Lab assay of single mutants.
Amino acid sequence: MALNTPQITPTKKITVRAIGEELPRGDYQRCPQCDMLFSLPEINSHQSAYCPRCQAKIRDGRDWSLTRLAAMAFTMLLLMPFAWGEPLLHIWLLGIRIDANVMQGIWQMTKQGDAITGSMVFFCVIGAPLILVTSIAYLWFGNRLGMNLRPVLLMLERLKEWVMLDIYLVGIGVASIKVQDYAHIQAGVGLFSFVALVILTTVTLSHLNVEELWERFYPQRPATRRDEKLRVCLGCHFTGYPDQRGRCPRCHIPLRLRRRHSLQKCWAALLASIVLLLPANLLPISIIYLNGGRQEDTILSGIMSLASSNIAVAGIVFIASILVPFTKVIVMFTLLLSIHFKCQQGLRTRILLLRMVTWIGRWSMLDLFVISLTMSLINRDQILAFTMGPAAFYFGAAVILTILAVEWLDSRLLWDAHESGNARFDD
């Protein structure tokens, strides 16, 4: 018995066209964080690309023209004298008006014999932002004059995390709450300039795509075929072959399989920071003279006294001054041990922890910024005066060393310790 099946006739004509040209192939790229070699397709503007294995951002879609970056830099340069030299806060102490600005706080630190601690604050609040705007201006002028731009481009990517104007702005709020127990506070004209400078700096850093600047100024022929001998440069993120001198053909720094002496430098910085954190938390970090009496505060006791007036601000200072430094030390110690013992479990967790400490590390400088600003506000000789204690130097040095330890660690070593050939990683 035959089955009668109805015929289905399409209502619209289906047209099949042959592909007349070869589909576009992607360029081969190595991930600078996990060293995976993959094919990167062509990316349009405002599109980002991520590593298929570790999800690290390979290409950032946010990109401004150099002219727009230069305009932002010149605007920031105009704001800087007002943000640093004009009063941020006014207080009335014992019937006398006192003005506080950024430069005055750094000068008070240096004047009291601790120039190293003052230079830490100076670099993060004044030096690094000033280098940022002058570097962008150098790129703008240098591109037109045919100057060598490689050193500036190499420095810009590392400079971003040292620009800490946003953290200093939080420190202004913390210092205001600490001082309000002794005097009446009012915002100064410099505060508005400083807030504007923070906003412009944040926007500029978020749109400063150094890798795209490398592509514009020093374009290189990408690798179009897969080759395990391809290496990625950690300076400019170019994937290719080393030249005859073993250097990256684009930025001219040595092109090595792994960062040289990464573990040794990381261990040295980490152990030194552990040693410095002990006096930083045991010795007094601030000293207040009130009517001839002397009151010393460690980091913890200062947080407890701050909690009596504002528990939320005390929580912020606790996280930045105690929780973050010790968390960074514990995480980095764990990561280094996992590399030495070739741990194969929990790779995803370790990668996330490394990215976390990379982002939060700079916030530990908050305590030094609060001390710097408070020193310029309260300084009335023996009637009422505020000065920093010996722990300030140890704390600042420990924070900087932990930042350097994270920067010096080559994250690809975590993958080397893991089993080879993993296309995915999980716990």
Rank of each mutant, 00 (worst) to 15 (best):
A2I: 04
N4F: 07
P6W: 14
Q7H: 08
I8K: 10
T9W: 05
K13W: 04
I14C: 11
R17S: 09
R17E: 09
R17F: 05
A18E: 08
I19H: 07
I19V: 10
E21T: 07
P24I: 05
R25C: 08
R25N: 08
D27C: 11
Q29E: 09
Q33S: 07
F38K: 04
F38L: 08
S39Q: 05
P41M: 07
E42Q: 06
Q47G: 04
P52R: 11
R53C: 09
A56E: 10
R62M: 06
D63I: 14
W64M: 10
S65K: 08
S65Y: 03
L66Y: 08
L69F: 10
L69M: 07
A70D: 04
L77N: 07
L78R: 00
L79Q: 11
F82G: 05
W84E: 06
L89A: 02
L89D: 05
L89H: 06
H90P: 03
H90D: 03
H90R: 08
R97Y: 02
N101R: 01
N101Q: 01
M103P: 05
W107I: 08
M109C: 11
T110E: 14
Q112N: 08
S119P: 05
M120T: 04
V121C: 08
F122Y: 15
F122A: 04
F122T: 10
I126K: 15
V133S: 02
T134D: 04
A137E: 06
F141D: 00
N143A: 15
G146T: 04
G146R: 08
G146P: 03
P151I: 03
P151R: 15
V152I: 06
L153I: 13
L153W: 03
L154G: 02
L156S: 07
E157S: 15
E157H: 13
R158T: 13
R158S: 15
K160N: 09
M164K: 01
L165I: 13
I177E: 02
V179S: 03
V179C: 11
Y182T: 13
Y182I: 13
A183G: 01
A183H: 08
A183T: 04
H184I: 05
Q186K: 15
Q186F: 09
A187H: 08
L191K: 02
S193L: 02
S193Q: 04
A196Y: 15
V198W: 15
T201N: 08
L205Y: 15
S206W: 15
S206M: 15
L208V: 14
E212S: 15
L213G: 15
W214I: 15
F217L: 15
Y218M: 05
P219T: 15
A223C: 13
R225Q: 14
D227S: 15
V232N: 14
C233N: 00
L234Y: 15
G235V: 03
H237D: 13
G240H: 11
G246N: 12
R247A: 12
R250P: 01
H252D: 10
H252P: 03
L255S: 09
R256Y: 11
R259F: 10
R259T: 11
R260D: 09
H261Y: 07
S262Q: 05
C266D: 06
C266G: 11
C266S: 13
W267I: 14
A268M: 03
I274D: 10
I274Y: 12
L276V: 11
L277Q: 07
L278H: 11
L278S: 08
N281E: 05
N281D: 06
L282C: 14
P284T: 07
S286V: 07
S286I: 03
I288M: 01
I288T: 01
G292I: 12
G293Y: 09
E296P: 07
L300T: 05
G302R: 00
S305N: 11
S305T: 13
L306W: 00
A307Q: 14
A307D: 02
S309C: 09
N310K: 15
I311D: 11
A312L: 14
V313Y: 09
V313W: 07
I316T: 15
I319W: 12
A320E: 00
L323Y: 02
V324E: 01
P325N: 03
K328P: 00
M332C: 09
L336D: 01
H340M: 09
C343Y: 15
Q344E: 09
Q344I: 13
L347P: 04
R348N: 12
T349K: 14
I351Q: 09
L352A: 11
L354M: 15
L354F: 11
M356L: 12
T358V: 13
I360A: 08
S364V: 00
S364H: 02
M365W: 02
D367H: 00
L368N: 09
L368K: 03
L377E: 01
N379H: 03
N379K: 10
M388Q: 10
M388Y: 04
P390D: 10
A392G: 04
F395Y: 10
G396S: 04
A397V: 09
A398D: 06
I400Q: 08
A405C: 11
A405V: 06
E407R: 07
W408M: 02
L409C: 04
S411N: 11
S411W: 09
S411Q: 12
N422T: 07
A423V: 14
D427I: 14
D427G: 11
